[in-house]
């Protein structure tokens, strides 16, 4: 199965779920009771139809030759790029968790360092730390001091 086939099923599933949730919506107490439902209902049904069309197209284009089968499999392969993406997402979650407790500068320093570590390896750690520090401090000054976007500070208060 290729990624494209899976996506066509996901789309259909979203269409079904969305249509179902639309029908479950409570009637509006103000104005026309069905007013909030009409537009979403059109969307839900449209996506369901599109999902079916996509599945049909996928079934008609099922890989036949060995080469095509390989290609379909390759779209789901787990390589270094996918590893980097999973890492980046996890790093982002860690960033979100640390952001308020330890403040912008420290959490950004950790986020950037980890990100640079995975891309560049351990050899250039000093250079990576320098880049992270400069970016974190510069961005903090730019946004917090000049642009008036208040960023959280660490328990040390001043940064």
């Amino acid at each position: 199965m290729s990624l494209s086939t899976i996506m066509s099923m996901v789309v259909t599933l979203i269409g079904a779920l969305y249509t179902f949730s639309t029908l479950m919506l409570p009637a509006a107490r103000i104005g026309n009771p069905t007013a909030p439902k009409v537009f979403p209902l059109i969307l839900g049904i449209a996506l369901l139809i599109l999902g079916f069309l996509l599945i049909i197209a996928e079934l008609r284009n099922l890989p036949k030759t060995e080469e095509e089968k390989k290609k379909a499999k390759a779209s789901l392969a787990f390589g270094p790029v996918e590893k980097n993406i999973i890492f980046t997402i996890l790093n982002g979650i860690l960033y979100a968790l640390l952001f308020n407790p330890i403040g912008y500068i420290f959490s950004t320093f950790i986020f950037l360092n980890l990100q640079l570590l995975i891309f560049r390896g351990k050899q250039k750690w000093l250079n990576s730390m320098l880049i992270s520090t400069i970016f974190a401090v510069f961005a903090f000054l730019l946004f917090n001091t000049f642009l008036g976007v208040f960023l959280p500070t660490s328990p040390l208060q001043f940064i």
Partner: peptide, 24 residues
Amino acid sequence: FAAMILGLMIATIGIDMQSGVSRF
């Protein structure tokens, strides 16, 4: 088209300003 409808669906999430119904 599927991408377009998905986008419209994302836009419907939240409290409906006219009726107060909380959607999706």
